[in-house]
């Protein structure tokens, strides 16, 4: 009996509530941000970019994001060629790419930091290894050993007596990927990978391969940690052992953390288009950063966010 009463009450109340909400929402300033938004770039950032696109479409129904995510290297190329005005990268643009852009357009692209991430070295979940030093990491992955190891490490037994004698199977990303490039620069001291590195076309494939192969090791972004793999702890510059937790990344303790970037082709003094402005505003907003967290990345510091929001607010408005 009581339940029936409740329902009747609900039926009676809901139009009233609707009117109330209507009154509330009419006050929201109506805008008319419309138009296409096209971005090119990193596979790592594809997840957040697509979800930001979905949220943006909720806020501004007239905006649609089109994304092509094949690797960070495709972003500067597309920005320089003008194929897209937004480029998502999981590493900073290098001098060579920046010069090419300036040579074509006469100014630098605007760099925005949108999230923090970490490169995580992963092994199979049953691998007993706990942590790796920088030299060991280099000796495992590179053939050039620029970080100073005396000899290469090819078998697990070289890392400790209790490990099996199996050959270490290396998994990583293809050359166009920012993850590949950044790992090479930061973990291999700029050296080159071994030929034996399995180059997968996506980070998810790396995690899947490591999860399926007990004698393997690989590296992926923080958001690709899955059930089958375990993240290794790394030694920082002081020799302390740090796990790749969001907290360690937030504090900057974990050695292989990185920013994720958005590059915008914006001539100095000119305005962003409506959709671009709305997109960047969303990315830097608490909702945008919540997406970052939801996907397993690490949010930016409040200072960094404020600073970039101020920059966004300082831009001239599009007519």
């Amino acid at each position: 009996m009581a339940r029936v009463d409740e329902r009747r009450w609900l039926r009676w109340m809901s139009p009233l509530l609707g009117v109330l909400l209507l009154l509330l929402t009419v006050r929201v300033p109506a805008d008319d941000v419309i138009g296409p938004l096209s971005a090119v770039g990193s596979d790592t950032l594809a997840g957040p970019m697509l979800r930001w696109g979905e949220r943006l479409a909720e806020r501004h129904p007239g905006v649609r994001l089109q994304l092509q995510a094949s690797g960070s290297a495709s972003a500067p190329a597309a920005l320089t060629a003008g194929t897209a005005r937004l480029g998502a990268m999981s590493r900073p643009m290098n001098d060579h790419e920046r010069e090419a852009f300036i040579a074509r357009h006469g100014y630098s692209p605007v760099e925005l930091k949108v999230a923090r991430d970490a490169l995580v070295v992963i092994v199979h979940r049953h691998n007993p290894l706990e942590s790796l030093g920088r030299r060991e990491l280099d000796a495992i992955f590179s053939e050039s050993r620029r970080c100073g190891a005396d000899q290469g490490i090819e078998r697990w037994s070289q890392l400790g007596g209790m490990l099996p004698a199996d050959r270490i199977v290396l998994h990583g990303r293809n050359v166009a990927s920012g993850t590949h490039d950044l790992f090479r620069r930061r973990a291999l001291c700029g050296g080159g990978f071994r030929v034996r590195l399995n180059e997968h076309p996506g980070s998810a494939a790396v995690a899947a391969a490591v999860a399926a192969e007990p004698s393997s090791i690989g590296f992926v972004g923080l958001n690709h940690l899955t059930a089958g793999v375990r993240a290794l702890q790394l030694h920082d510059a002081q020799g302390r052992v740090v796990s790749p937790t969001p907290r360690a990344v937030r504090r900057g303790d974990y050695p292989l953390w990185r920013y994720l970037y958005l590059y915008v082709n914006l001539p100095p003094g000119s305005a962003l288009t409506g959709p671009e402005h709305a997109f960047l505003e969303l990315v830097l907003s608490p909702q945008g950063q919540a997406v970052v967290e939801e996907l397993g990345f690490v949010t930016l510091t409040e200072e960094r966010l404020m600073q970039q929001r101020d920059w966004l607010a300082s831009l001239p408005m599009a007519e």
């Binding site: 053939e143 050039s144 050993r145 090479r184 990978f193």
Partner: peptide, 18 residues
Amino acid sequence: PVEGAAEPRHRWRPESLG
């Protein structure tokens, strides 16, 4: 000639390491 290897090798690596 490949960095880190004693003798010349066949190598496909379309990225420059400096």
